[in-house]
Amino acid sequence: MGVNYLDNRAKIYASSDFGDEPFHSLLREETTVQAVSETPVHKKAKPVFRAVIQATYKENFAFRSNMAVSLIVQPIYFLVQYFIWRAVFQVHDTVSGFTFQTMLYYFAVSSLLGFLNWDDTDGTLQRLVQNGKFITFQLRPIHHLYYAFFQKVGHRILAFWIEMVPIIGFYLLFGIKPIPAMPLWAIISVALSFILAFLINHTIGTMAFWLVKTDGIRRAVLVFKDICSGIFVPLTLFPGGIQKVLFFLPFQFISYVPARVFMGSYELAGFTLSIPAIVGLQALMVLITYLLNRLVWFFGIKRFTGVGA
């Protein structure tokens, strides 16, 4: 039975793109002695993170038309924003320190960040818990947190080519060049926002250990997160009191902070910080969110039964 099992697995893996080298080697051993002498039997397997990234990339490549919908949707959203602010700036030179051009630049950068940071980790984790399939992750040699993170990396690499590059081209038509004022700090800030967005989503997904179905709470947090992260409007447009609250929440670090780092200046709730200082705060927030995620996971995983619902 054991041999049959291995044989079947070998055939499955050999016919797939997963590239599990030990099983490929096993098949080759069966075919010819000559092949064995030419091929090393103990070839090193791919690192798990690379395998997950590649598999996710290939899997989603099959559904690339899904992603390509953004090429219709995003220009429409942008056009609406363009007309709104064009009308507003017809009678005002600046609004909350933004000119028409800087406002468009802000929207362009924050939309690109939106593409880069998007993930459905919360929904995926919830579905895994709900149908009980999460139990397979208890058997895998990789923690779900890292598995999901590398899935996001693979997914977003694909999104970069399919969604982001053409949309950057669209923005260029409006004379918007999303070039950061301080490139190195911008890269660090974007990378941190990528991790932070993932950690927040994963922590929300963890709620499924308690609630099983979390559509409502996920939708609530999604809206709250989008508003508080500055995707809809720059956070300095909010009333002073709300700005103070927003300053202490982690959400501004997802979109508002990296967008401001792109612009080369940061200001919120009367606090004007240098770019290195705000990026440092962003790194601290990533660390805090990571620790919070671990804590919630620690208590949540104890509630998982594997039964499904």
Partner: peptide, 13 residues
């Protein structure tokens, strides 16, 4: 929300 914030900042359509 966008409308409210625009008018809150003294701007308008």
């Amino acid at each position: 929300l966008v409308t409210l914030l625009i008018y809150h900042n003294g701007a308008s359509f």
